[in-house]
Design a protein around this nucleic acid. Structure first.
Length: 188
DNA sequence: GCCAGGATCGTCT
DNA sequence: GACGATCCTGGCG
């Protein structure tokens, strides 16, 4: 796409077709996009890709009530509780029947600083997926809802560069999946 | 600044 | 009944 075309799309909600692609591509292109929830806006600066056949994927061992949204249509939310405390926000990708999602690992508050500060005990840093979930006031009740229903994602400025790195905190059966560079970090 | 340990609960075996 | 795609605090140097 031309840079003029990208600028024209800036600020517009991402279409469902954006998510109906290879998860690693979606994970990279989500960097710089803005997650909007009421008055709070968070720019995505770090993502991780989880896709079919990936042993670190929650869905790798099969479908359960918890991970069912990953099998659903692209452009939905998959929210789950981690360590009994943190709600982690994922965006479902790829066609129905292919369990895949992008985990939002980190962000920057671009609007709604007061609300985020209240929820985060005065802190505004969103380095870590649990913090992103807290800033956006996510809970598991959001899991399975389509994007646009209370939470939307709009196109924002793409980062100057993207760094790829191994994913964090996973204990996959397959060491190749652990070492794979499926985490993407915005380099501004 | 670094590291160890505790928090806390839904989900799956 | 164990454990997890984590975060925060407190102790120590």
């Amino acid at each position: 796409m031309s840079s003029r075309g990208l600028i024209a799309l800036m600020g517009r909600p991402l279409p469902i077709s954006f998510f109906d692609r290879d998860t690693r591509i979606v994970a990279r292109e989500l960097l710089g996009c803005i997650i909007v929830r009421d008055e709070v806006q968070v720019r995505v600066v770090e993502t991780e890709a989880y896709f079919p056949g990936d042993s670190a994927n929650h869905a790798f061992k099969g479908k359960t009530p918890r991970n069912a949204p990953m099998w659903g249509p692209p452009g939905c939310l998959y929210v789950y509780l981690c360590y009994g405390i943190h709600t982690l926000l994922n965006l479902v990708t790829e066609a129905s029947g292919r369990p895949a999602a992008v985990l939002i690992r980190a962000g920057e508050v671009v609007a709604g600083h007061d609300a985020v500060s209240r929820r985060r005990g005065g802190r505004l840093d969103l380095i870590g997926p649990g913090k992103v979930g807290q800033a956006l006031a996510m809970d598991t009740g959001w899991s399975g809802r389509p994007i646009g229903d209370g939470l939307s994602v709009v196109r924002g400025p793409a980062p100057a560069a993207i760094r790829a790195a191994p994913r964090v905190g996973i204990d996959a059966a397959d060491p190749a999946d652990v070492a794979a560079l499926w985490r993407y970090i915005s380099q501004d």
